[in-house]
């Protein structure tokens, strides 16, 4: 019997998710023994037409990382959906929109203008912008078009499972792949991580007082932090209480607060709103001016509370922005 076929693909992403596959280290050998990798652009050369030629559902599982930002990514998502039995949103960008999703705060024009004209590091006196097609010695190469907004994978095609994280941990990746290979699959639509907030597995959990209220917020670089005390108790915004566990509190063990890359639990539709509601309810002052003073410690609320989840949130994008 032939080995099941597996594909890895990347869309709007940084490449970190690919790194996790590599970080499986020797475990990858066990996997490679059991599967055929039919597509993995970061490591091997495949052509579009090769995939197109494959029969539908012939790929057992595709692990797709990255958000959907361009026409090309959308097209690939649709094609891989057709060719695969299981489509897995791999990593925070495919799952929630990720860091690229933060651009949903701005229009496409705003973003292009900044990046090609206004950015301090940009020298582009002719204000040249990327073109969708151009003539080049008799050929006419084309570039994919940017959509107005960044979408999660499941906002474009149906998704079977999600492996969360920025990037997912090797351990969870192993769990997901093993579950696939052994056909021990959770209910469709599951996120392959425990459905409880990170505090549950946080080494600093016990150190949080029951009456924590906030008189100030500080960013990690603004404060000498106690290495054992709950970060929220120190006035550092930690997304742990509203973030799914499964990373074993890797950032917190490294002395940094959770930034929320695993996304919310299954019970929450909007991770940012939930942590906002929780933190703001516990702000100590009760007068407007005093409250504002405390909140000044969070200069970029969207980037703080929606660092990975803006595209998937209830707000999703700047008001009145078209999707495509």
């Amino acid at each position: 019997m032939s080995k099941p076929k597996v594909a890895f693909y990347w869309c709007a992403s940084c490449g970190g998710c690919e790194e996790t596959i590599v970080d499986l280290a020797e475990d990858i050998l066990g996997i490679v023994e059991k599967v055929d990798i039919v597509l993995w652009p970061v490591a091997m050369d495949f052509k579009y037409k090769d995939i197109e030629a494959m029969p539908d559902k012939s790929i057992a599982a595709t692990l797709l990382n990255g958000a959907i930002r361009t026409t090309e990514q959308e097209e690939m998502a649709h094609m891989l959906r057709r060719k695969s039995q299981y489509l897995i949103a791999y990593g925070a960008c495919a799952h929630l929109g990720g860091i690229p999703g933060l651009s949903n705060q701005f229009s496409r024009e705003h973003m292009l203008k900044f990046n090609y004209e206004d950015a301090p590091s940009m020298a582009n006196p002719k204000k040249t912008r990327p073109q969708l097609k151009f003539a080049d010695g008799g050929r006419e190469p084309t570039l994919p078009e940017l959509h107005h907004v960044v979408r999660t994978l499941d906002q474009v095609v149906e998704v079977d499972y999600y492996v969360p994280g920025c990037p997912p941990t090797p351990k969870l990746t192993n769990v997901a792949v093993t579950a696939l290979l052994e056909n021990r699959l959770p209910p469709k639509g599951s996120v392959i991580a425990p459905d409880i907030a990170l505090c549950d597995e946080c080494p600093r959990k016990a150190s949080k007082p029951v009456n924590t209220s906030f008189t100030e917020f500080k960013r990690p670089h603004q404060k000498l932090m106690d290495p054992n005390l709950c970060l929220l108790a120190q006035g550092i915004v930690c997304m742990g209480p509203s973030t799914r566990s499964g990373c074993e509190a890797a950032c917190i063990r490294g002395g940094m607060p959770c930034t929320g890359c695993f996304g919310p639990t299954s019970r929450v539709r909007d991770q940012g709103l939930k942590i906002l509601s929780s933190l703001c309810s516990n702000v100590a002052p009760k007068e407007n001016g005093e409250i504002d003073k405390v909140l000044e410690g969070i200069p970029d609320p969207v980037g703080t509370f929606y660092r990975y989840g803006l595209a998937k949130s209830l707000m999703r994008r700047k008001v009145n922005l078209p999707v495509k």
Partner: peptide, 28 residues
């Protein structure tokens, strides 16, 4: 409280105007 799902983050405890929420130290 959904007992299985509660992570014990204690965010709710100081908020209850009726002091109805307690933190179970043994079960966290």
């Amino acid at each position: 409280i959904l007992d299985e799902e509660c992570s014990g983050c204690k965010s709710c405890i100081p908020l209850c105007p009726y002091s109805a929420i307690l933190y179970d130290e043994t079960r966290k």
